[in-house]
Amino acid sequence: MKILIVEDEDKTVAYLRRGLAEQGYSVDYAGNGEDGLHLALTGDYDAIVLDIMLPRLDGISLLQSLRSSRDTPVIMLTARDKVDDRLRGLGAGADDYLVKPFSFLELLARMQAILRRGRSQEATQIQVADLHIDLVARRATRRGRRLNLTAKEFSLLAALARRRSQIVSKTAITELVWDINFDTNTNVVEVAIKRLRAKLDGPGEAKLLHTVRGMGYVLELRDGVGE
């Protein structure tokens, strides 16, 4: 999932980016309202964390402009613990509201809650054979067995599951999972695939993660054993 942070305090941005990245989210940010509005209108974000007090365009004005064409979930942040500010933000279309200083765990819980409300069951839950993936809770199980995945391993599994039965190239994986472009001659993708496969395909279980030589990887249940 991709999150946009619109915040002008560097410490808050660093705090949020680190925490969200550790949870496996891809994060963009803007330090002023004008740039934030441009990204919000042109990017494909699952949620936005928006400060009220911003240079060049305040958070309320940004949200009002955004709501004319987008319904992206928004959590508003402010240093002001005032009821009227909270009401203004909610009235402008914010989905939730937090007052600084805030707990990252609380923000994460609220974000997951609004993502559940805003997305259909099909969008948040993926089933591939006996593999079940909860995209919001970031949890994967196979026949009731919890897969102990790192943030990147879960992102890799989710990227393949969203494209189940489709071959996904190494280049596409680097963009989808690492959100960057780099030389696909490096073995970072192969290493990540090997680690994910070791956790996904247990002893006696049908193999779900397959290598298609020269093309990429595919997540699906096949009749044969496969690679």
Rank of each mutant, 00 (worst) to 15 (best):
Arg88Asp: 14
Gly89Ile: 01
Gly89Tyr: 00
Leu90Ser: 05
Leu90Val: 06
Leu90His: 04
Leu90Arg: 05
Gly91His: 07
Gly91Gln: 09
Ala92Arg: 02
Gly93Asn: 06
Gly93Asp: 08
Ala94Gly: 02
Asp95Cys: 11
Asp95Ala: 12
Asp96His: 11
Asp96Cys: 06
Tyr97Trp: 02
Tyr97Pro: 00
Leu98Pro: 07
Pro101Cys: 10
Phe102Thr: 08
Phe102Gly: 09
Phe102Met: 09
Phe102His: 11
Ser103Cys: 10
Phe104Ile: 04
Leu105Trp: 12
Glu106Trp: 06
Glu106Met: 08
Glu106Val: 12
Leu107Glu: 03
Leu108Trp: 13
Leu108Phe: 12
Leu108Val: 08
Leu108Lys: 12
Ala109Val: 07
Ala109Phe: 05
Ala109Gln: 10
Ala109Ile: 01
Arg110Asn: 07
Met111Leu: 15
Met111Asp: 02
Ala113Arg: 14
Ala113Thr: 15
Ile114Glu: 02
Ile114Ser: 01
Leu115Trp: 01
Leu115Ser: 02
Arg116Gln: 09
Arg116Phe: 02
Arg116Glu: 10
Arg116Trp: 01
Arg117Phe: 10
Gly118Trp: 05
Gly118Lys: 14
Gly118Phe: 06
Arg119Phe: 07
Ser120Glu: 10
Ser120Asn: 04
Ser120Pro: 00
Glu122Leu: 14
Thr124Phe: 03
Thr124Leu: 11
Gln125Arg: 15
Ile126Pro: 03
Gln127Arg: 15
Val128Asn: 04
Val128Cys: 11
Val128Ser: 03
Val128Met: 01
Asp130Met: 08
Asp130Gln: 13
His132Met: 13
His132Asp: 14
Ile133Phe: 06
Ile133Thr: 06
Asp134His: 13
Leu135Val: 12
Val136Gln: 00
Ala137Pro: 03
